[in-house]
Design a protein around this nucleic acid. Sequence first.
DNA 1: TTTTATTGTCTCATATTATGACAATAATTC
DNA 2: GAATTATTGTCATAATATGAGACAATAAAA
Lengths: 232, 232
Amino acid sequence: MKGSENTKFIPNLSYDCVIFGFNGVKLKILILEYHNTGLFALPGGYIKHNQSLQEAVNKGVEERTGLKNVFLDQFQVFADPNRTDPSATRRILEANNKDLADNEWMTERFVTVGHYALINYENVNPKPDHLSDSIEWYDIDNVPKLMMDHNEIVSKALEVLRNNISEKIIGMNLLPPRFTMKLLQQVFEAILGHTLRRTSFQRKMLSLDILQRHEKLFEGKAHKAPYLYSFK
Amino acid sequence: MKGSENTKFIPNLSYDCVIFGFNGVKLKILILEYHNTGLFALPGGYIKHNQSLQEAVNKGVEERTGLKNVFLDQFQVFADPNRTDPSATRRILEANNKDLADNEWMTERFVTVGHYALINYENVNPKPDHLSDSIEWYDIDNVPKLMMDHNEIVSKALEVLRNNISEKIIGMNLLPPRFTMKLLQQVFEAILGHTLRRTSFQRKMLSLDILQRHEKLFEGKAHKAPYLYSFK
DNA sequence: TTTTATTGTCTCATATTATGACAATAATTC
DNA sequence: GAATTATTGTCATAATATGAGACAATAAAA
């Protein structure tokens, strides 16, 4: 039936998600590229009429990463009436052989709810959706030009992440279950964009009483082996 | 023309605003009561198709308080599919002799963007809108039972305000242009919900280098007159 | 002139954080 | 197997910030 798609969703409302991961060196985000258009965008989607926003975003993140119930922060609404770009949306629909008339609702103005997710890089298996031909990790300091206001959404997400930097949440979601103090420090440095003092950082983390110390990690390197830690 | 109202606005999307004021003693918020219904609610509204969210909220706040361009923080989206209460909306429409069929769109599910505003209590002249018969200040610790999830929105706004307590923003927006150190301390105590140490507070504020000291304020009291300050 | 209440500013004790020093220790090199 | 290397865990000391109280200054009333 024609036009059935648009009745499933709340009109003019979408979500977009900045998915952060950490590969041990750099902070990265997932960006998708649409078939034959050269257009890059954040993963996002629409909210069904019977669905909560959080359900919708969780589902979208799961479809692209395979991860369930990841840490999500809904950080800002972007609602400039001119933020949407109908011509870009049409290009994507055409490149995917979609009926324009049928999908006209997608070219309307959209208010979007910006989220960021923190996920364990190693567990992710990025999967493009039916409109895009790739979804890939990009260094946070090397993000390509994105559609509409998505670059602004990324900047804002990083800003909020930096301000809300809670030791436990960041560590628990961006790191593997067991990690060295050095790796923990490297996540913080990657997020904050500057180096930290080793001794102060270590003392601070230990004093917070959120870490559990485990066995040492023998990496086969010619120096003292570090302890492994997990979050309590 | 029937049903023309709903075409003006983005469907299923609203804003609500917790408007904070400080009367010198208590932190207060503005709450409106609907004609002949006993229903209390936060001031809120809808977003026109050609309007940004911020424009819509600024306009709503101005209509109820007479104040333009007040400090606004868009702090959270509330999007539970069951948060809306169609029966309450119908009661309000009936009490105002509105055509139910014509306004059926108002009883649909709404996703709302929660905001809080900080305003100078003294400058406000509260004005009820066409559906409500009063808009009044309530102590933050004595808020009545509100419609839908509005009590939750208030709690969340206060929580965010407490966490985001930036000296300058709070002082500049909740206080008159010139104020004593004591009044400044009282705003902070009203927001935080606990007392602060006078000497430490004073030293802290002065060390931040955000205050300009002016002439003394002679209140006609039998003690040393305090200086007046403004924000730089 | 004395009293009263409050203000502005110290002082000293007590955290907290910065900075550097240093011993401990896996693995490599000789 | 002893010396070397790179890194880790921890401590010592200095610099800052905060907590808690003391006290003199002072505007108006008694």
